Simulated assay, not measured.
Amino acid sequence: MLYFVLILVLAALGLVVTALITANSLWAWISIGLSVLAGLLLVVDWLRRRAAARAQSPADAEPDGAGDGDGDTAGDEDTGQDAADEPAGEAQTALLPASGELKTVAGDPAEEQTDAADLLVVSALESEVLVVDEYPRYHVGGCTWLESKDTIPLPVKEARDLGFTPCALCTPDATLAAEHRERRKSRK
């Protein structure tokens, strides 16, 4: 739906330009109409997503034994977990892996505190690291946090330029800097 809204907004922009060039107010009114339609579609999409999120929220689930009598709660149906099994106070994100089942994972790991010498080495490297869409950290291949997440390989220099920061679990900066220094020693 968002692509359709984008197309409507671009069409409205084109019509405004046309109205300014031709001095014909009809094009401006059509542009306003398209803009209002795009805004209404955004509101409808927002309301639809909000209703879907409420339907999936474990906080809205009734306690065990209550409800329609089948013993299932809304949280059990959507995630396959009881609401009591979830860690309290941790932000969780629902991910839809390629297999199609819904899993919840805890938030991203802390940021590695990179030594200045390692930072200078890593910022010039073209070694490949892994990132996960919508998460701010980059990782080396064996990171336990990645498990079954869909990853995107990037050169470490590009990942840093895009604003990604190193993961504290797999310490990619320290690992890559040590590998680089080891390769330089073996060449000598």
Score class of each variant (00 low, 15 high):
Trp29Cys: 06
Val16Trp: 02
Ile21Lys: 14
Leu20Cys: 11
Ser127Met: 03
Pro166Met: 01
Phe164Lys: 00
Asp72Met: 13
Ala23Leu: 11
Asp108Gln: 15
Glu128Phe: 00
Leu96Ser: 09
Cys170Thr: 04
Glu147Ser: 10
Ala159Val: 00
Ala159Asn: 01
Ala59Thr: 11
His180Asn: 07
Val140Met: 01
Ser127Tyr: 03
Gly141Asp: 15
Met1Trp: 08
Gly80Cys: 04
Ala38Gly: 10
Lys103Gly: 05
Gln56Ser: 07
Asp64His: 09
Val17Ile: 14
Leu2Lys: 10
Ala110Asp: 15
Leu2Asn: 11
Gln56Ile: 03
Ala28Thr: 04
Ile21Met: 13
Val44Thr: 14
Leu146Arg: 02
Ala23Asp: 10
Glu126Phe: 03
Val43Asn: 05
Gly75Leu: 00
Leu15Pro: 01
Val156Arg: 00
Glu90Asn: 07
Thr114Ala: 14
Thr171Tyr: 01
Ala19Thr: 07
Asp78Met: 11
Arg48Phe: 10
Ala38Val: 00
Leu26Cys: 04
Leu102Pro: 04
Ser35Asn: 08
Asp70Tyr: 06
Ala55Ile: 01
Arg49Gln: 11
Leu20Ile: 13
Ala124Lys: 13
Asp118Trp: 00
Gly163Met: 05
Asp82His: 09
Asn24Lys: 12
Leu162Val: 02
Asp173Gly: 02
Val131Phe: 00
Asp78Thr: 10
Trp145Cys: 00
Cys167His: 01
Ala55Glu: 14
Trp27Ala: 09
Pro155His: 05
Leu120Asn: 13
Gly14Leu: 04
Lys185Met: 09
Ile21Asp: 11
Ala23Thr: 10
Arg50Ala: 08
Lys103Asn: 07
Ala94Met: 14
Thr22Gln: 12
Thr93Ser: 14
Ala91Glu: 12
Glu147Gly: 04
Val44Asp: 13
Ala53Pro: 01
Ala116Phe: 02
Asp133Asn: 11
Leu6Arg: 08
Asp150Leu: 03
Asp118Ser: 06
Glu126Leu: 07
Ala117Ile: 06
Gln113Gly: 06
Trp29Met: 11
Ala177His: 01
Ala28Met: 08
Ser57Ala: 14
Leu120Gln: 14
Lys157Thr: 11
Val122Thr: 06
Glu77Asn: 12
Val132Met: 02
Ala84Tyr: 12
Thr151Ala: 02
Ser186Phe: 03
Leu2Tyr: 12
Asp76Leu: 03
Pro155Ser: 12
Leu176Asn: 02
Val5Ile: 15
Ala66Trp: 13
Ala177Asp: 08
Pro63Glu: 11
Val156Asp: 02
Glu147Asp: 13
Phe164Ser: 02
Leu15Asp: 09
Arg183Pro: 02
Ala74His: 08
Gly107Trp: 01
Leu119Glu: 15
Leu37Ser: 11
Val17Pro: 03
Pro97Ala: 05
Trp46Gly: 09
Ala178Thr: 12
Val17Cys: 07
Ile32Ala: 13
Ala59Glu: 15
Ala53Gly: 07
Ala94Val: 15
Arg160Met: 15
Pro58Lys: 04
Glu179Ser: 10
Leu102Arg: 15
Thr73Glu: 14
Leu102Trp: 10
Gly142Ser: 06
Cys143Tyr: 00
Thr175Ile: 02
Val105Cys: 06
Tyr135Thr: 10
